[in-house]
Structures are given as C-alpha cells and as structure tokens.
C-alpha cells in the first residue's frame, strides 16, 4: 500500500463517523421535508399525494398566501433594520474600541456580555421591561415626566416589530463588534498613520481605508445577519407569541412555519404538508440568495 493511499484511507476513516452523523441528522431530515411537502397529511399520517398543492396554497391561496407574504415582508424589514441598527452600530463601536482608549477592555467585555446570555432569558427580561403596566421602560418614562411616551410597546403594530428588532440588536451587537474589531486590528498601523500624515481626516480614513479593508468581516456579518433574520424564531416566539400578535404584525416565516406544521393548542391545526412546503421554500431562498451574495461580497475583498 502506498503511503498516499494509506493516508487517504486514514482520512476517510476519520471522516466517516462525522459524515454519518451529518447525513442522519441534517441531510436526511432536509431531504425528507422535500418529500413531505408533496403529500397530504392528517396529523403524522400521510394520506395521499398532493403534487404542488401545498405550494399553491401557501403562495397563491388567501389567507395562507397573505400570511406568507406578510411574514416574508417582516423578515426583510428585520434584515434591513438589523443591518443598519445592529451592524452599523457595531462598526462604529469597533472603530472606537480599536483606538485603545482608556477602559476599552471594560467596554469590550460589557458589549459582549449580552451575547453570552440565552435568548430565552433576554426575551423574558425585555418582555417584562416592556410591560405596559409595570414595565421598567414605561415606569422610567413616567418618572421623568414623559408620560405620553409610555406605550404598550409590544401591543401595537407601529412599535411591536421595532421593539423586537431593538432587543435583538441589544442582544447581538457585541458579536459583529468583535468581528469588526478583529478585522480592524489586522489593518497595518503604517497604512493608517501614513494616511493621517498625508492629511486624511478621520472620516476619510474610515471610508477609504478601514471600510474596504474590513470587507471579509462585512461578508461574514452580512451573511450571518441574513441567515439569522430569515430564520428568526426564538425572540418573537418568546416576546410576542406563535401568532405574531398583534394581528400578525410581528409574524415572521419561522413563526408561521411552526404554527402551520405543528399547530397551536388554542387556534390552529397541524399540517405537515403546508409546513414542509414552507420549510422547503425558506431553505431554497436562504441557500440561493446567500450563495449568490457571498460570491458578490467576496469580489470586493482585498488581500493584504
């Protein structure tokens, strides 16, 4: 046996257990969802072939299609808002931290602290903070004389989704900050210093030097935010509920999928057919867009 073959065999041997696990618990479930989507279901019993009927229902038959587009639209809003609010903030925070000012270690840790807390804790905590009667937010507003600013934050369509987005940003901002900070620290000092000597102001340096050079970090942050936004489930589930209240104004694809496939105790029935069809479409959408976008983003990355 040639050493080369021996080496390949070794690699194959070491990879097999992991591959088997991935096939059994990732690939097969995804493929089975593809199959399920083409059947009619009664509970967990398959009762006949449905063709594209499940897809037709969720894409073209109101009210199911109305719910699909409504939820999808909210996912888009969440993505755009998080890009601006969460990742924009993260970029500037990282810039400030990278200057190594006094207490920057302390600020770095406190920014990252919420990231290590579980979404369940964050969700319950903020739900209490935003409670219209005894929540910290309204109490504070009333205490400082801003009574009219006190709102039922999670109870009105104008503020409910925005509140969830802000909480999500508060929870996760430390992560993109850290990614950007690491990227900024990799930028050679000489480049920034010589630009400064040449008379480039802070804004010019940020825009012309830092921003292009942290492009790989931007790729990671954009892709993770994109996937996270379109798979968003835990926070809206904990803070508003499976139905995306009030009247579907916080409904997102994750919630809609869950209630369609598994039903709710208090209103809906379970339908694995429509649920799987939704899961398949969400999966294909995320896969397609991220594959296309990663290639686009990679093109603007520069090797130092």
């Amino acid at each position: 046996m040639s050493p080369r073959l021996r080496r390949s065999l070794w690699i194959a041997l070491l990879l097999t257990p992991a591959l088997l696990l991935i096939v059994a618990f990732v690939t097969l479930p995804i493929l089975s969802a593809f199959v399920y989507a083409f059947y009619k279901w009664q509970g967990l019993a398959r009762v006949g072939f449905a063709g594209f009927d499940n897809f037709r229902l969720i894409l073209f038959q109101p009210p199911f299609s109305t719910w699909t587009y409504n939820a999808f639209f909210h996912n888009v809003i969440v993505f755009v808002a998080l890009m601006v609010v969460q990742n924009g903030t993260a970029f500037f925070l990282a810039w400030m931290l990278s200057k190594g000012l006094r207490l920057h270690r302390f600020h770095q840790v406190s920014l990252f602290l919420p990231v290590i807390l579980s979404t369940v804790i964050i969700g319950f905590l903020w739900k209490l903070f935003l409670n219209p009667l005894f929540g910290l937010v309204n109490r504070t507003l009333i205490a400082i004389g801003l009574d009219s600013w006190a709102q039922p934050w999670l109870g009105q369509p104008s503020t409910a989704l925005a509140s969830l987005i802000v909480v999500n940003a508060w929870h996760w901002v430390g992560f993109p900050t850290l990614v950007y900070l690491a990227a900024m620290q990799r930028i050679p000092r000489e480049i920034l210093e010589s630009a400064e000597i040449d008379g480039a102001g802070e804004w010019t340096r940020l825009r012309r030097i830092v921003w292009p050079l942290v492009a790989p970090a931007t790729t990671i942050v954009v892709m993770l935010t994109f996937i996270g936004s379109f798979n968003w489930f835990e926070l809206p589930y904990i803070m508003s509920g499976l139905e995306g209240p009030p009247f579907h104004s916080t409904d997102v694809l994750g919630l809609y999928f869950y209630r369609t496939a598994f039903g709710t105790v208090s209103a809906g029935l379970q339908d694995f057919g429509r649920g799987s069809a939704l899961a398949v479409l969400i999966f294909l959408f995320i896969l397609g867009i991220s594959a296309w976008w990663v290639r686009l983003l990679r093109r603007r990355e520069i090797d130092l």
Partner: peptide, 11 residues
C-alpha cells in the same frame, strides 16, 4: 387596563 393591547395572558 391602560395599554391593554400590550397586556398579555400572564399579566
């Protein structure tokens, strides 16, 4: 209750 649109079941 005041702000009843935001008052959930446990509250």
């Amino acid at each position: 209750p005041q702000g009843f649109t935001g008052v959930d079941y446990p509250t």
